[in-house]
């Protein structure tokens, strides 16, 4: 009986969004009389940061402070149509729609300000702090708030914008079967170091190291949050979670959190992530999105690490102690793979 260490790697090219019937997202933006803006979306924020990223993109495009943008999401009765928050598409698809809407709203905002200042709208710039002024003449200025009120109560103008971003349906080429459903790919590589106990079959993830290329990182802390949380979920899928261990036979399936296992706070591994930024040409400010790929490479990397450690190739998830012990027995003992390189030295 002994513990065997092994290292596994995986890389992933992850398509942003999917396209089975065209992939549109819409955004509507309007100003309120206090000079603040509301972005209406049907996209959902379930904690991944959609609202914050939408807010940043809208504020940047409008040229107003981020505090002055409110994002109203997740009511498909009142928001414009959206395909949804899935397939890592949120930042890319909705962000692009927001930029289109915000550009239109900004155009009206500057027209209204031009009327008040009696100048040409093309000569106006925003300072990002709530003011609009003539380029090169900061004293010739008006606040966004005063502009919104003038538009509303004097000029009878709606400072608003509509945006849609559509990836059209990609038809399948009848001759070759080719299609091109995706416009942006994110990339990652992850290394997992594990220790496998050949008596109990238990796997401990010792550490993980990864590099993620996600286009422009619009909110670095939220990207980090996604990647760290998603990696935990990857470990959970690789080693713990299973709805029905004898699928499609539901017998012995878990019924509660005593039986549906997930790694607890004591089971997490040190994780080091490097984020690389290569802005996507068609992304909002170059952004793509971390989304699902936070978890994806963990699974094959852990499976490869287990193989490297004890020579057991498990190709059905989760990688349970039972499967490892059966594999060791079938192989006639532990057959560790070659060791390459030393420990990843990032501490």
């Amino acid at each position: 009986m002994a513990r065997h260490e092994g290292r596994g790697m995986a890389s992933v090219n992850y398509p942003i969004g999917m396209n089975l019937g065209g992939d549109p997202s819409q955004a509507l933006i309007h100003s309120n009389p206090d000079g603040k803006f509301t972005v209406a979306l049907s996209a959902i924020d379930l904690g991944q940061g959609m609202k914050q990223v939408s807010r940043q993109i809208a504020a940047e495009t409008l040229g107003v402070p981020v505090e002055d943008v409110y994002v109203d999401t997740a009511d498909s009765d009142t928001g414009p149509h959206d395909m949804g928050s899935f397939a890592s598409r949120g930042t890319h698809r909705m962000g692009n729609a927001i930029i289109v809407a915000a550009r239109e709203a900004r155009g009206v905002l500057l027209e209204a300000a031009a009327e008040e200042l009696e100048v040409n709208a093309a000569d106006l710039v925003t300072d990002g702090r709530g003011n609009i002024h003539v380029r090169g003449a900061p004293s010739r200025s008006i606040t966004v708030k005063a502009t919104a009120q003038a538009a509303q109560f004097k000029q009878g103008k709606t400072i608003a914008g509509r945006g849609i971003f559509l990836i059209p349906l990609s038809a399948v080429d009848a001759e070759t079967g080719e299609m091109n459903p995706n416009t942006a790919f994110a990339h990652a590589c992850l290394v997992a170091d594990v220790s496998v106990d050949d008596e109990t079959g238990e796997v401990e993830v010792l550490r993980m190291t990864s590099a993620y290329e996600l286009g422009r990182v619009i909110n670095p802390r939220m990207v980090e949050q996604q990647l760290v949380g998603g990696a935990w979920m990857g470990i959970s899928h690789a080693l713990y979670e299973t709805p029905e261990p004898y699928y499609p036979n539901p017998e012995h399936g878990p019924r509660d959190f005593n039986e549906y296992l997930m790694p607890g706070p004591g089971d997490i591994a040190p994780y080091h992530v490097t984020v690389l930024e290569r802005p996507a040409p068609d992304g909002p400010f170059g952004g793509k999105g971390p989304g699902e790929m936070c978890a994806n490479p963990v699974l094959p990397a852990v499976a490869n690490a287990v193989y490297n450690a004890v020579g057991v190739r498990v190709d059905e998830l989760p990688i349970t102690p039972e499967k490892i012990l059966r594999g060791i027995k079938a192989n006639g003992g532990v057959k560790p793979g070659p060791r390459r390189g030393g420990p990843v030295n990032w501490r």
Binding site: G47, G229, W232, M262, G264, P265, G266, I268
Partner: peptide, 18 residues
Amino acid sequence: VVEAISGNICRCTGYEPI
């Protein structure tokens, strides 16, 4: 800290930020 929160399940964060 780990012991104190070991009875609490979190699905999103991976516990490290907590």
